[in-house]
């Protein structure tokens, strides 16, 4: 079996709110899958359904070959979860919470626990409520990475970490992938997703709007082009966000118009040219912008 998570047509409503509206998500075994979406788009709801905490109204979800609701206990032996907002028991120390969470899913590797505490620079003797947000997150991260889980479900796990700890987190995810684990990483930090993820799903308003490798997604969107020309720039009806200053030109074009653009430019004569694939940020923004009429062709 090659898929770790297979979700189709998932619907979940809370009263009148439709949190998930036919969401699809496929995560292959052994991949790091980025799960992107704005606040309130249904990422955490999806994750709670995958954890068997919420029951979907309709649609199917298969997790590691099992039903997340019915087989919750057995599946949870094979997965580790880090919530975005970690709350700890105030009278338990961080070390106790790590051990408890590890044991509840069937044990953790003591050597790796020690090593991770050191790498994350976490003091395990503090009581739950004495930790800052970032340190509470580290408690959950150490418990998750010290386990031998097949699947790591990480719901915005780095929102409280500093850049140094973010680096430690990235190397931990990479190590988890190297030992064959699958990672579902819900995140807002696009550089993190770009650096770590093999494939990405972008959701909006409870629906998947884009899914694929970053290369595939980039192919679907526009390339930014900047050119220094010999003469006056030509008419480019297919270009978006066109800005012309003298003989300099900046614009974005869809993949299918790239060829036409280059022909038009070389006809005038090119002194310098840079082209850059769209960043994930641009991809993201394009999907998240409120649905408004596309600005027409060139804005001169």
């Amino acid at each position: 079996m090659t898929t770790a998570i297979e979700v189709t047509g998932l619907v979940k409503t809370f009263g009148r709110t439709r949190a998930l509206d036919g969401l699809d998500l496929t995560v292959a075994r052994g991949e790091v899958h980025g799960f992107l979406g704005p606040n309130g788009s249904g990422k955490s709801t999806t994750i709670r359904i995958l954890l068997g905490l919420f029951r979907a109204d309709s649609g199917t979800a298969v997790l590691l070959g099992g039903d997340p609701w019915r087989d919750a206990v057995d599946l949870h032996r094979r997965l580790a979860y880090v919530p975005g907002d970690v709350t700890l028991w105030r009278n338990l120390s961080g070390g106790e919470a790590i051990d408890l969470l590890g044991r509840l899913r069937g044990g953790l590797d003591p050597a790796r626990r020690t090593e991770l505490l050191e790498r994350f620079e976490l003091d395990p003797t503090k009581k739950g409520r004495a930790y800052s947000k970032g340190n509470r997150q580290k408690v959950a991260l150490v418990a998750a990475f010290a386990s031998d889980a097949d699947l790591l479900v990480l719901d915005e796990p780095t929102s409280g970490l500093d850049p140094l700890m973010e680096e430690v987190f990235r190397s931990c995810v990479a190590e988890a992938r190297d030992r064959g684990a699958t990672v579902l990483l819900s995140s807002h930090i696009l550089s993190e997703v770009e650096a770590l993820c093999d494939r990405v799903s972008i959701i909006r308003a409870g629906r998947t709007v884009e899914s694929g490798t970053l290369t595939e997604l980039r192919h679907l969107t526009r390339t930014s082009v900047e050119a220094e020309l010999v003469g006056t720039p030509p008419e480019l009806p297919f270009a978006h966000d066109l800005v012309v200053t003298g003989t300099r030109l900046r614009c974005q074009v869809d993949a299918e118009h790239l060829d036409a653009l280059l022909r038009a430019l070389t006809a005038v004569g090119v002194r310098g040219l840079t082209s850059r694939p769209p960043t994930l940020e641009e991809l993201f923004l394009r999907h998240y912008e409120p649905v408004a009429p596309e600005p027409t062709a060139a804005t001169r």
């Binding site: 028991w89 009278n91 338990l92 120390s93 961080g94 070390g95 106790e96 919470a97 790590i98 051990d99 408890l100 044991r103 509840l104 395990p124 003797t125 503090k126 009581k127 409520r129 004495a130």
Partner: peptide, 26 residues
């Protein structure tokens, strides 16, 4: 003042019942 706690859990703290005992004991 808050006192520091143990760095590792006692072996008995391994089940949801043990956690509940710990929380409801006081």
């Amino acid at each position: 003042p808050q006192r520091p706690g143990p760095a590792a859990a006692a072996p008995s703290l391994a089940t949801p019942a043990a956690l509940a005992r710990r929380l409801q004991r006081g």
